[in-house]
Amino acid sequence: MLLTVTARDLMSKTFPQQQFVIPDLLPVGLTILAGRPKTCKSFLALSLACGVAAGGIVLGKISVQQADVLFLSLEDGERRLQNRVRGMFGEDDVIPAGLHICTSPPKSSPLTGGTKESDLRDFLKSKPSVKLVVIDTLGKFRMDEQDAGHKQNDGGYAREVKSLSRLKAIADDHGVAILVVHHTRKQQAGDGDRFDNILGSTGIFATVDNAWILEKESSEPRGVLYTQSRDIEAMQLSMTISSGGVWSISDDSKLLQVSRERQEILDLLVESGSPMKCKELSLKLKKPEDSIRQTLCRMVNDGELSRVGRGLYAGPTGNSSHEVTSGDKAA
């Protein structure tokens, strides 16, 4: 039997505000961080983990509330992790006790028996103070095939959707952010959406709540972090990494201000000369409709756009001669 709700009843419901581990950047839910090898994406994940575990300032600019962190470092041993953490904190800093590290793994690991779903759930249940889980990397993290309900004839898309959906369920059930480090393709498309370069099937991007792409030349200390989300505005952040491996947002990066996506929307509206619908903008920008809809709502609230009819958006100057009909007014 289908359980339904009318649109009117839906609009009368009140939902809690979205929760963030890192305000306006990393919400509760499942996030994937992808990049080519040697882009220092593991250092970025560790920078975030150390920052949240210590509390205070993350990425040099964002104030965060202290919370415990579980860091599954499944490609690096304890010696390498020790060197990296020492480089991030320095000799005189106090290492946060709330940063729990599991390498690939001794039997004394808190995840007894490996990194299966039940172990992760048990750990989070035993330590409700943990609000961030980092998995480095997705390729090394293995759910139990039988527990995950996989079939031998499942294709890559089905396997990835099932596996990541279960990780997402853990994040939602325990109210934590899970950040999974992954790779992009070696042969990357020269045009189109950079998020299409995430290694694997499209099931990965379709399942996660948020996707990040880190782009950086291996010999350069500067990079760019691109973010795409179901619920928060897409961003492009200019980043720098210190000699100690600490990532920070560059001074020339305008965090949480007008994003490239907002500018692209404004440019399209000016170019069209008439109001456009969310679906039209989504198709032209080749971006998820849900993400564009969220951005449009925020732009209306910020006075950058106006609604001029049923589902129609125009620039702040009302870039058209569109006449609102009685049907539009009723909307």
Rank of each mutant, 00 (worst) to 15 (best):
G139N: 13
S326W: 09
L30N: 06
G149P: 12
V161S: 00
M239V: 09
K284F: 05
L33F: 06
Q19L: 07
I241G: 02
L179G: 07
L72E: 00
K279L: 11
G90P: 03
Y226V: 02
P96K: 06
T31F: 01
T103P: 02
E91N: 04
E323A: 03
T227L: 04
R121M: 07
S253V: 13
G149F: 08
E264H: 11
G98E: 01
A206H: 14
E271I: 07
Q17R: 15
T137R: 01
N301M: 10
G51I: 08
I135L: 03
M239F: 08
G114N: 06
K41N: 07
A49Y: 01
L167R: 10
V300T: 13
A177V: 14
P288A: 06
T295A: 12
P110W: 06
A34F: 05
K162G: 04
P96N: 02
D93H: 09
A7T: 15
Q188N: 04
A97R: 13
E304G: 10
S104T: 15
F141Q: 00
I135S: 00
K107H: 05
P106S: 09
L132Q: 08
A330F: 08
C40E: 11
S165I: 11
H100K: 06
D290L: 15
R293T: 13
N319K: 11
S248M: 07
I213R: 00
S201W: 11
K277S: 15
N301G: 06
Q146K: 13
R166Y: 03
I204P: 05
V300E: 10
K127T: 12
D231W: 10
F43L: 03
G315S: 15
G273R: 08
A331L: 01
V270W: 04
C50A: 09
L214D: 05
A54H: 01
E75Y: 02
V176Y: 06
R8V: 15
I170Y: 04
D328L: 02
E220L: 10
D231S: 12
V5N: 01
K168Q: 15
S250I: 01
G29C: 10
D147S: 13
R307M: 14
P128Y: 07
G318H: 04
R307C: 09
R84M: 04
G223I: 09
V270I: 12
G60A: 03
